[in-house]
Design a protein around this nucleic acid. Structure first.
Length: 283
DNA sequence: GTGACCACCTGGCCGC
DNA sequence: TGCGGCCAGGTGGTCA
């Protein structure tokens, strides 16, 4: 087998972000920012580094929330909205520790510790909002319901997809329709639903939509309980690794036998995204 | 309104 | 051994 296709990139999806949120809650709540160093300003959206510092210095972390794959740090009256994208991570370290190559933003706390944003590919983003504007402005106000949300019903999904001829895989990756599903979990959900990833979204039956809702919730719930998925080396703060990779049925398992019918799992591309499915179970 | 495509960015891998 | 090129990923922007 071509080695290039074995290596799958790791990425933080909703379960991984939930793990990061819960881990950081125990570590930074009630800590006050004394200073900030920004080594790569491309992560900060819309405002200058000076404004970013002005908003956050002397502020205290009072809560951490999550919406989809976004982390929302509450600092008094300000919200720092962070998206980890492909490889973003947070670490707590002492002020004395040297900065590693990929640490792009360091928050210095008054107690001598630091919160460090580490991102190998510099894809992550940070937005600043007033707390009263969090849910009324982009990016949060564009997000659809999460799989656990009661708003996610068959009628909601049917209305969203009725004019969509794009593959169901692409539709499920669209965070304005359902928020929280990423490439790994969409493959796993579609496998459990026995749906081919290229099925046109507007051809699905109500039973299919019901299954999508049901299995999205089941898959993400289980992944959260297991701390997410560590495919190559993704770890959350303080090196917490996920165990959901042991539950994967198709993703990254090209040429491995399907657990149901033993047919080799196929890897293809759907709108440029690496996609794994069983050609027999998912017709 | 919809869908396709591109940019962003870098480590790891393959082929030469 | 070293170099060039490809690939992976989520999201936002642009264009048809």
């Amino acid at each position: 087998m071509n080695q290039k296709f074995i290596i799958t990139k790791k990425l933080p999806e909703l379960p991984e972000v939930e793990t990061v949120k819960e881990t950081l809650k125990n570590l930074i709540i009630n800590k006050t920012i004394r200073d900030i160093d920004v080594f790569y300003d491309g992560i900060i959206k819309d405002i200058s580094v000076e404004e970013f510092k002005k908003y956050l210095i002397d502020k205290t972390f009072t809560n951490i929330k999550r919406q989809g794959k976004y982390l929302i740090f509450i600092l008094d009256d300000i919200a720092l909205i962070s998206h980890l994208r492909m490889e973003g991570k947070y670490f707590i370290k002492s002020t004395l520790e040297d900065r590693s190559k990929h640490e792009h933003i360091i928050f210095y706390f008054t107690d001598g510790s630091t919160l460090r944003y580490h991102d190998t590919r510099k894809f992550g983003t940070m937005d600043i909002r007033n707390i009263e504007d969090i849910y009324d402005t982009a990016p949060i106000n564009k997000l659809g319901p999460e799989p656990f949300d009661k708003k996610l019903t068959v009628s909601y999904l049917s209305a969203k997809l009725k004019n969509k001829s794009i593959p169901i895989k692409s539709a499920l990756l669209d965070q304005t329709i359902i928020t929280g599903l990423g490439n790994i979990y969409v493959d796993e959900v579609l496998y459990r639903c026995k749906l081919n990833p290229i099925t046109k979204s507007n051809t699905l039956k109500k039973a299919d939509l019901s299954n999508i809702i049901k299995y999205s919730s089941i898959v993400l719930d289980k992944a959260i309980k297991l701390g997410g998925t560590t495919i190559r080396s993704y770890t959350s703060s303080l090196g917490v690794t996920g165990r959901f990779q042991n539950e994967l049925n198709v993703h990254t398992l090209e040429n491995e036998p399907c657990k149901v019918c033993q047919t080799p799992i196929v890897k293809t591309k759907v709108n440029g995204r690496g996609t794994y499915f069983c050609p027999k179970c998912q017709k």
